[in-house]
Write a protein that binds this DNA or RNA. Sequence first.
DNA 1: CAGGGTTCTTGACCTGGATCAATGAAAACT
DNA 2: AGTTTTCATTGATCCAGGTCAAGAACCCTG
Lengths: 249, 249
Amino acid sequence: MTQANNVAPLFMDIAKVEHEHHLACQSCALYRLCLPLGLHSDDLAQLDTIIQRSHSLSRNQSLFDYLAPLKSIYVVRSGAFKTTVAASNGREQVTGFYFPGEFVGMDAIHSQSYQSTAKALETSSVCELPFERLSEIGAAMPQLQMQMMSRLSKELSADKNLMLLLGKKTAEEKMATFLLSLSRRFQDRGFSATEFQLSMSRADIANHLGLAVETVSRLLGRLQDGGLVHFEGKSVNIKDMHALQSLCG
Amino acid sequence: MTQANNVAPLFMDIAKVEHEHHLACQSCALYRLCLPLGLHSDDLAQLDTIIQRSHSLSRNQSLFDYLAPLKSIYVVRSGAFKTTVAASNGREQVTGFYFPGEFVGMDAIHSQSYQSTAKALETSSVCELPFERLSEIGAAMPQLQMQMMSRLSKELSADKNLMLLLGKKTAEEKMATFLLSLSRRFQDRGFSATEFQLSMSRADIANHLGLAVETVSRLLGRLQDGGLVHFEGKSVNIKDMHALQSLCG
DNA sequence: CAGGGTTCTTGACCTGGATCAATGAAAACT
DNA sequence: AGTTTTCATTGATCCAGGTCAAGAACCCTG
């Protein structure tokens, strides 16, 4: 690559190179999973020009805060995020975890302000889609609009299933469902379906599933004792996928 | 004392008049709340041509079933609906209630098949938006697409709040939140915020809030004893809105 | 308007998972 | 290195809300 004497971080270099060639999205490892899928190449080129790839965050840094005015929709590029909504007292609910290729911030479109808070779970980066400009170029790109709607719709059905989980499933069913959901998402991204790392804390998992941390700890122990899964700190190794599936309810 | 009798006939009459004049949307009582808001009159005229207003359902009849191929998005015209998602055994979760002006079926866009089942809670009617044709005309109407996205986004944030309710709130907080949500929605539709009819059964309420029917019954009794609300069968009369708000958590 | 179903209420009891408490194991800092 | 702080596990106890049971009030439909 050029600029051998430049000491800028790796991501900056990539961003620059991509920008010069106007090929950023096409050459992205997440292309298959991401917004540009199905766009014509000149539409894609136009989309490329408005996407800002610079944004990088460290652990616990927030991508946006509750009620901040909608500026951009974000696509996770690397790392992972959680979103939370808060009740009047201190309580809050972890409403979702987001991995590379997934959209964050779409619940802000209606009210034009974010309705949740998004925090990085580890060092992470995002592609930023400035909403104003996205709307402008989207006006002439029905496929882009349809892609966005499709994404919204996908998150909507995922949330309905989460409601089923929170409202009707037992602690064990919740845990099994959660692990399989992670497994599937890692697989979709080309990683192993059976071995992966939990980027979130036990507390985040517990909160997300409507359980206490202690319960999560006990459940994980129980699943491990049963030989279904092996845990070691944050790493997960699913030993019996089928048995796990039968626990989902 | 069915509240359907108050509402349904009115909307039916309007529907007839509207159709004759090809002004359906403009002259609809729900115009302020509905999709066409903000469209130019020629765009609206075009939208009018694809909307089917005929559809009417009786109590318990399903508008669409889980996994049926996506045909249309629906807007409630009169009456009320519930949507449910089912777990592998018999359990199911009531994921939402839908009132006039609200959209049903948007979670089908991504997978092109409905991801929930929608049932009428009483005699109800809908406007049907054939999705194929909606996409076609939407391609040339960015405002329409944006309206749809906005609707999706609105339901998304509502669902996140429901996750907070299901995961973190106590039975009493759930009940208070639910009653106030109904109150607000009736008010938005030009009805009283303090007196209205529950179109759904105790069982549906309980299910939706992740509670047992008996708990709902007891909570309603308790709220009534406290003088916050008066119940008589399906009718609700909120006596102390403020106190109710302070119970929402 | 009788009778059979369904839905709602109320009481008595029980349990899954929360809470409390104590300890161990990692990180993060100095 | 050691020290502090956060995070995870494990055990003991408790309670909010579920379950079971039995009426009561409300439908329907003939």
